[in-house]
């Protein structure tokens, strides 16, 4: 379950094609699709990418990403002009930087504690972090408002999404591409290779003089920075943030997005997020109502079953399935062995 991901080069042609398609998408689709599907898939993908980055290159499946993005989102919403929370009315750009800084610092702190555990312990500890962040914000109404922080002030570059969702979409797209490229490049630096070494052979890396805990902590901090970006973008997307939007369900949703896409490839994050957003919006129309068990209101059952099927069938997610298929297509079935020439007996 841990295929080697190493210095895979970025597939530029495919990336350029996808980004070009995404850039002209506003001309092709409705405003609703642009916001509810594409924009959402992009920022949700960034959150999932921070998880996949840790899982693929660091061997750490972290459930703390939603907790961290919640901290970034809450920090941003509290710093700018908003309805509820501290409403400090700071310049949105300044608030943005501060929110990312806070998220990264908290992430480094979490990382420092969690980094010394491995595997399943790491999963549990980060889950506990995430849920504690949720409980914190639901208890401390001074920071989360009663019923969340509403009508959050957005930076000028995003404009007012109610009137024109296009700028917000483009901003999210550019950031998503930058995150993808940034993490891709990072994985091929000395640090990225060190991370993969720590993932595969922590004991040997330690013997070689690498500081394993430091590598893990820094990786966690970088992932926290990325998760923070997703958190701020989620506030741009919703123009509000509530404790309920960073609860365990959301934690698991981001995990589901990452697993559906594929835990071992960064691209999987956005593929999973797009799948998730599509199902989220359209399943109500085509899912049949089966008593109380299945139906429009039972979205979570549907997504849970999909998640279960993916985990049971293909640990590599949709990307893994696609790779298996292409491998089957590429390697032709073995040609029948040539018959030995009949021995001629005189």
């Amino acid at each position: 379950m841990n295929p080697t991901v190493s210095t895979r080069r970025i597939a530029w042609p495919a990336l350029i094609a996808v980004v070009a398609l995404a850039a002209i998408a506003p001309l092709l689709v409705s405003d609703f699709f642009l916001s509810a599907i594409l924009t959402k898939a992009l920022w949700l993908g960034i959150a999932a990418a921070s998880l996949i980055f840790l899982a693929a290159y660091g061997g750490m499946v972290s459930l703390a990403q939603v907790g961290i993005y919640g901290i970034a989102g809450m920090a941003y919403a509290n710093l700018v002009l908003a309805d509820g929370g501290a409403a400090a009315a700071v310049n949105p750009y300044l608030a943005l930087v501060a929110a990312l800084l806070i998220a990264t610092l908290v992430g480094l702190g979490f990382g420092w504690i969690a980094a010394r555990s491995e595997g399943i312990y790491f999963l549990m500890i980060t889950l506990a972090f995430s849920v504690l962040v949720y409980y914190f914000f639901s208890q401390v109404t001074g920071l989360s408002g009663f019923g969340g922080i509403n009508s959050v002030d957005l930076p000028g570059i995003v404009g007012s999404p109610e009137q024109d969702p296009l700028p917000r979409y483009l901003v999210t797209l550019v950031v998503a591409v930058l995150v993808f490229l940034g993490l891709g490049v990072l994985s091929r630096t000395a640090f990225g290779l060190g991370m993969q070494g720590v993932r595969d052979e922590p004991a040997r890396m330690r013997a070689l003089g690498f500081d394993v805990t430091l590598h893990r902590t820094l990786a966690f901090g970088i992932a926290a920075f990325v998760a923070g970006i997703a958190g701020v973008l989620s506030v741009f997307y919703n123009t509000r943030i509530t404790p309920g939007s960073i609860n365990l369900a959301q934690t698991i949703d981001v995990l589901i997005v990452a697993v559906i896409g594929g835990l071992y490839r960064l691209e999987g994050a956005w593929l999973g997020a797009l799948t998730y957003a599509l199902i989220d919006n359209y399943s109500r129309e085509w899912v049949p109502e089966v008593g109380n068990v299945l139906g429009p209101a039972r979205f979570n059952t549907l997504i849970g079953v999909l998640f279960l099927i993916i985990v049971l069938a293909s640990p590599g997610g949709l990307i893994g399935i696609a790779e298996q298929l292409s491998r089957k297509v590429k390697t032709p079935r073995r040609a029948p062995a040539p018959m030995p020439a009949p021995q001629t007996v005189d």
Binding site: I120, L255, T301
Partner: peptide, 22 residues
């Protein structure tokens, strides 16, 4: 495969929670 098992049980808990709510 402890991670896979954890993911499977998470999926089951999502389904169970939703069905119990229903």
């Amino acid at each position: 495969q402890d991670l896979r098992q954890a993911l499977i049980t998470i999926a089951l808990s999502v389904i169970l929670a939703d069905q119990m709510l229903a």
